[in-house]
């Protein structure tokens, strides 16, 4: 990974959306530094909904992600109990491009949605989306699928990215998740994590194990997948490790999900059945 340079920070504890927009435009027009030009290339707008308890993990996952998917990243931190207002920070994340006279820059805006603003996030992000590029929403933790906040954000994005391994109520949560498929395409990092495991099972077909052992989310999804694809029902047993692991960093797994633009019917069918297990 190329060295990351934070550049030209702007922040305001009491901002308006149009000020954030102006700040992002201003940053984009910066001419560069160290004799190199700044170049902004974007392939998507990346929203992340990050409740308080997920802030640290979210920052770790996002590190290096923008290098692989140059984007405008909008980090939304809901703070419903704080005094109403919008606190914002915007900056450029720039990477060296070896052998080139340019820095590659991504725009990042951290938006703290305080008080009632935490209930109307769509109205805040809509003006800030890059036109004509896909919008991905990474939802940290377990979404409340019925909440107004969730419903309005899903309305404005092309793809929802979750990690169902972050959820406590497996498998019943999958039944609720399945209801969302009608309104938005969903990626699940837990599902991506099971890819080597599923490949191993596919290669063993038609000989399949009677029992799957692993972490609850991944194991339930694989069991749902076997039932939906092959009509095979297997028992699940809890363990900490996946039998066929994927040792890549969370940012690598998320990065792969950002390359997927269409719905995944195989996943959706696995989730529908997983919810009944």
């Amino acid at each position: 990974m190329a060295p990351l340079i934070h550049l030209d920070e702007w922040q305001d504890e009491c901002a308006t959306v149009s000020e954030v927009e102006q700040a992002l435009i201003g940053l984009r027009l910066k001419r560069g530094f160290e004799g190199k030009r700044n170049v902004r290339t974007s392939v998507l707008t990346h929203l992340a909904w990050v409740p308080q308890e997920w802030q640290e993990a979210a920052t770790e996952t996002l590190a290096g992600l923008a290098e692989r998917h140059p984007s405008r990243t909008l980090l939304l931190f809901p703070e419903p109990d704080a005094e109403p207002g919008l606190a914002a920070r915007a900056f450029l994340e720039c990477y060296e491009t070896p052998g080139s006279d340019r820095h590659l820059c991504n725009e990042v805006a951290e938006l703290r949605l305080r008080g009632a603003r935490a209930e109307a996030p769509a109205s805040i992000v809509l003006p800030l989306l890059l036109p004509d590029l896909p919008v991905f929403l990474r939802w940290r933790g377990r979404p409340d699928f019925d909440s107004a906040v969730f419903r309005q954000l899903v309305e404005v994005v092309d793809r929802l990215v979750v990690d169902s391994a972050e959820w406590q109520d497996i498998p019943s949560a999958y039944s609720e998740l399945a209801e969302v498929f009608a309104s938005v395409d969903v990626s699940d990092i837990a599902w991506r994590r099971t890819l080597p495991w599923r490949r191993a099972l596919a290669q063993a077909w038609p000989k399949l194990p009677d029992r799957l052992t692993g972490p609850p989310a991944e194991t339930t999804l694989v069991a749902g997948w076997l039932a939906s694809r092959a009509g095979v029902e297997v028992a699940v047993e809890r363990a900490d490790e996946l039998p066929v692991g994927d040792d890549r960093a969370p940012s690598d797994l998320l990065s792969e999900e950002l390359d997927v633009y269409a719905g995944d019917p195989v996943y959706e069918e696995a989730v529908r059945i997983a919810g009944r297990l």
């Binding site: 077909w205 092959a230 095979v232 195989v266």
Partner: peptide
Amino acid sequence: MATKSSEPETQQNPLLEGLMIR
């Protein structure tokens, strides 16, 4: 082993879809 023995062995592997096996 949970083999689905009722299906003929020659049946196309239903698990392969979407696995991007190179």
